[in-house]
């Protein structure tokens, strides 16, 4: 019997061939979901409240957002790009334009780590304007950029519900997620000095409790300054959901790092990109299957053979 009549030998040669192909680095062009995000971090003072997690270890809203951002990096598919920005006052400041996350994971983590609330350039925090202007910024960077906006929704000074800033962009044109960070209970906001030493908490008398418009009107009418609860802070979730609704963004509450990473990988936020995918594994797997089937085939062949012999006997 010559060797080529033996199916076993042919299979083994085929397995050799498949394995040899891996050294030619076979690639396949696949449409893969990748993302282009800019993470915007609210660095206003209410983000220092330590209520981002319900359980110990307690962590500030800003630090929890930073941790979620860093943890999300290795979970994003390669080819995804990420930029970083800060928000305070009424606008965002772009720190880096989006760069690829796999190659630059280390330096992106370092950049996120460097974020400090003390960088603030205004003591106010106008979330609605901030979200709208950040959307405009995304548009300037590239229309395929999705925004991820970490905030507790705490407007300071408060906005007049009748005089809300108007979103002038096109709803849903820039996609993204507003990420709510913080707890449900109203808690005191820590107060720090320039060196980062805590001086206690913001007091009711330190902050404005009503929007600027009403405040001025009250002053003219001789109404005493109001005392409210603006020195306390919680996650203003319904406000953020409303903002998300107006702008066509999604809303996600930051509870666990894992669910945040999942939210980032939502299909509707992806930009399909043709990625040259390594398919060496496929060649190797086929080669392995061929080899294994030799072992699985042999007992069957033997049985058939003995059955045949029994019949003829």
């Amino acid at each position: 019997m010559s060797w080529f009549k033996q199916p076993q030998i042919i299979m083994m040669l085929l397995a050799i061939l498949l394995l040899a192909i891996t050294f030619a680095y076979p690639k396949m062009s696949l449409q893969q979901a990748t993302y282009r995000y800019v993470y915007v971090f609210d660095i206003s003072q209410s983000m220092n409240v330590m209520d981002a997690r319900k359980k110990e270890p307690f962590i500030s809203r800003l630090n929890f957002a930073k941790q979620a951002a860093i943890d999300s990096l290795p979970t994003l598919p390669c080819g995804t790009e990420l930029g970083i920005a800060l928000f305070t006052g009424h606008r965002a400041l772009l720190l880096t334009t989006p760069v690829e996350t796999c190659k630059n994971q280390h330096d992106l983590s370092n950049t996120i780590n460097m974020i400090e609330w003390t960088s603030t350039w205004e003591s106010r925090s106008e979330i609605a304007k901030g979200v709208y202007k950040s959307i405009r910024l995304m548009k300037r960077v590239d229309e395929n950029t999705r925004m991820v906006f970490f905030t507790d929704g705490h407007e300071a000074p408060p906005v007049n519900p009748n005089l809300l800033p108007v979103f002038q962009g096109k709803k849903g044109k820039i996609k993204g997620i507003i990420v709510g960070v913080g707890g449900d209970k109203q808690v005191k906001i820590p107060k720090f000095d320039r060196t980062g030493k805590q001086l206690g908490y913001w007091d009711s008398g330190d902050v404005v409790h009503i929007d600027v418009y009403t405040q001025e009107k009250n002053k003219r009418d001789g109404v005493k300054p109001l005392r409210g609860t603006e020195h306390l802070s919680s996650l203003r979730e319904s406000y953020l959901i409303d903002l998300a609704d107006k702008t066509g963004l999604m809303y996600h509450r930051l509870v666990t790092l894992g669910s945040f990473s999942e939210q980032l990988k939502i299909k509707s936020l992806s930009n399909p990109k043709a990625i040259q995918t390594d398919i060496r594994w496929l060649m190797a797997l086929l080669s392995l299957l061929l080899f294994i089937s030799l072992y699985l085939m042999e007992p069957i062949r033997k049985r058939l053979k003995t059955m045949g012999e029994q019949k003829s006997a």
Binding site: T97, K103, D107, N110, T111, I115, E116, S119
Partner: peptide, 17 residues
């Protein structure tokens, strides 16, 4: 206020970004 952005590194891509 000062705004720290990135620590020393020699990754040209992120520095340019």
């Amino acid at each position: 206020n000062p705004i720290p952005i990135m620590p020393l590194n020699n990754n040209q891509e992120v520095i340019q970004a």
